[in-house]
Nucleic acid binder design. Structure first.
Lengths: 149, 149
DNA sequence: CAGAGTTGTAACTATAATGGTTACATCGGA
DNA sequence: TCCGATGTAACCATTATAGTTACAACTCTG
């Protein structure tokens, strides 16, 4: 089991939009950097748009950020790309026997713990803004460099 | 996407073994409380056994805890049931373009963050022992009660 | 206004994981 | 020896993922 790559793709896309705001970012172009198919990009971009994180121009093409860099956290992206149904990272088995003392009571106890674990994960994502990510990326790029793409 | 119910099933099983240590816990019996098929129980129990958390007697049947209640955390169970390949809760897209400055550098930055998020989740699970869980369960049972099963 | 380039989306595919189920060889104890 | 249990293989239906082709609709430009 793994959290879908839509998340990392979404972050990658937004980082591209942030780092070169002037460019004409078509799905074709973005697909080139992400290393996938343009349709996959359009799907993720559609989700980012629906969540109010990106603007996409139909027809002429090209995507831009819809919010300030400071106002996008990785949790926003995580939520946007529909990678986990809200509150349900863990799958609880569904028919514990209500006639068994453990079966009857374990569900609520476990659910609370699962929620706590999930919140801890989301807290880490919420603590990182796109600006911070892009700043780190920009520094990496400055030190190591890389050809254009 | 969801983390497999093998985790909640595993916890449920161990809680049953803990709460009524004297009983003869066959896969049939456990399946009754969990609300699933005996084979599903045997599969999870096999994983718990492999991880050194439970003993299972072949032939005569019956499972018991292999460790003290204090020495089993929910993280142990989580790891045992193979619900997530170690260190890979998030699926990173696989071919970022090395010729693009973002594609070339985003992987390591994102991987670090994913690892942090995952560790936060696991930290919550690691902080709860089976004893604590069973204590809470026992209290629930005492207050609310429930028929046998 | 016509055409080129792009988005949005449907449809199909291959692949994989999950959870349930049947079946059966093997084991252990009475 | 026989009964009941485990360990596993095999199969199935369901679901999600990610890639791909195809195409209608849109927007800018010449």
């Amino acid at each position: 089991m793994q959290i879908s790559s839509r998340f990392s793709i979404g972050v990658h896309i937004l980082a591209l939009l942030a780092i070169r705001p002037q460019d004409h970012h078509t799905s074709e172009w973005l697909a080139g950097s992400v290393g996938t198919n343009p349709v996959v990009i359009r799907r993720v971009l559609g989700l980012l748009k629906k969540a109010g994180l990106a603007n996409v121009r139909a027809g002429s093409g090209g995507a831009t950020l819809a919010r300030e860099l400071d106002e996008i956290t990785l949790l926003d992206v995580y939520r946007a790309v529909d990678v986990v149904e809200a509150g349900n990272l863990f799958h609880m088995h569904e028919q514990p026997n209500p006639n068994c003392p453990v079966g009857a009571n374990i569900e609520q106890v476990l659910r609370l713990l699962m929620l706590k674990a999930q919140s801890a994960l989301e807290g880490v994502l919420a603590a990182v803004t796109l600006r911070e990510l892009v700043d780190v990326l920009a520094m990496e790029i400055r030190t190591k460099g890389a050809a254009n793409g």
